[in-house]
Amino acid sequence: MQPFIDAQSAVGFVTPAFYNIERTVYQRKYPSFDYASLIPVVTEGSPWGRGVLFRSSDIAGKAEFLSGKGFDMPYADVTRDQFLKGFELAGIGYEWSLEEINVAALEGRQLGPEKGEAARKVAEQMLWNIGMTGTTEKNWTGLINDPNVAATTATADGTGSSALWANKTPDQILRDINAALTGIFTGTNEVEMADTLLLPSARYLSISTVARSSTSDRTILSYLQENNVYTAETGRPLTIRGLRNLATAGGGGTARMIAYRRDPEVLRFHLPMPHQFLPPFQKSSMTWEVAGIMRTGGTEIRLPKAFAYVDGI
Results as ranks from 00 to 15, higher is better:
residue 179 A to R: 10
residue 125 Q to Y: 12
residue 146 D to Y: 09
residue 307 F to C: 02
residue 207 I to W: 02
residue 219 T to H: 06
residue 12 G to P: 03
residue 153 T to G: 11
residue 81 D to C: 11
residue 256 R to Y: 08
residue 50 R to N: 15
residue 126 M to V: 12
residue 121 K to Y: 11
residue 104 A to V: 05
residue 236 R to A: 15
residue 139 N to E: 13
residue 292 G to Q: 02
residue 37 S to A: 15
residue 154 A to R: 04
residue 258 I to G: 00
residue 49 G to W: 00
residue 30 Y to R: 09
residue 249 A to V: 05
residue 78 V to A: 10
residue 153 T to I: 10
residue 9 S to M: 06
residue 293 I to R: 07
residue 115 K to G: 02
residue 134 G to R: 01
residue 289 E to I: 15
residue 305 K to V: 09
residue 177 I to T: 00
residue 287 T to Y: 09
residue 126 M to L: 12
residue 254 T to H: 01
residue 85 K to M: 09
residue 145 N to K: 00
residue 171 D to E: 15
residue 139 N to H: 13
residue 216 S to G: 02
residue 173 I to K: 05
residue 61 G to N: 01
residue 215 T to H: 07
residue 110 Q to I: 14
residue 56 S to Q: 14
residue 295 R to V: 08
residue 119 A to L: 05
residue 285 S to W: 12
residue 49 G to A: 10
residue 232 A to I: 09
residue 10 A to R: 01
residue 117 E to F: 07
residue 310 V to N: 07
residue 208 S to D: 11
residue 133 T to H: 06
residue 230 Y to E: 00
residue 264 P to A: 04
residue 114 E to M: 08
residue 80 R to K: 15
residue 117 E to V: 08
residue 270 H to R: 11
residue 246 L to C: 05
residue 263 D to T: 07
residue 97 S to M: 03
residue 114 E to L: 10
residue 93 G to Y: 01
residue 58 D to H: 12
residue 123 A to R: 05
residue 123 A to Y: 05
residue 42 V to I: 08
residue 148 N to S: 14
residue 288 W to T: 04
residue 294 M to K: 06
residue 216 S to L: 03
residue 53 L to P: 07
residue 265 E to S: 15
residue 214 S to D: 13
residue 146 D to C: 08
residue 305 K to S: 12
residue 103 V to T: 13
residue 88 E to V: 14
residue 201 S to D: 14
residue 118 A to K: 15
residue 95 E to Y: 14
residue 44 E to A: 10
residue 228 N to M: 02
residue 86 G to Q: 14
residue 47 P to I: 00
residue 288 W to E: 01
residue 298 G to T: 08
residue 124 E to Q: 11
residue 46 S to P: 05
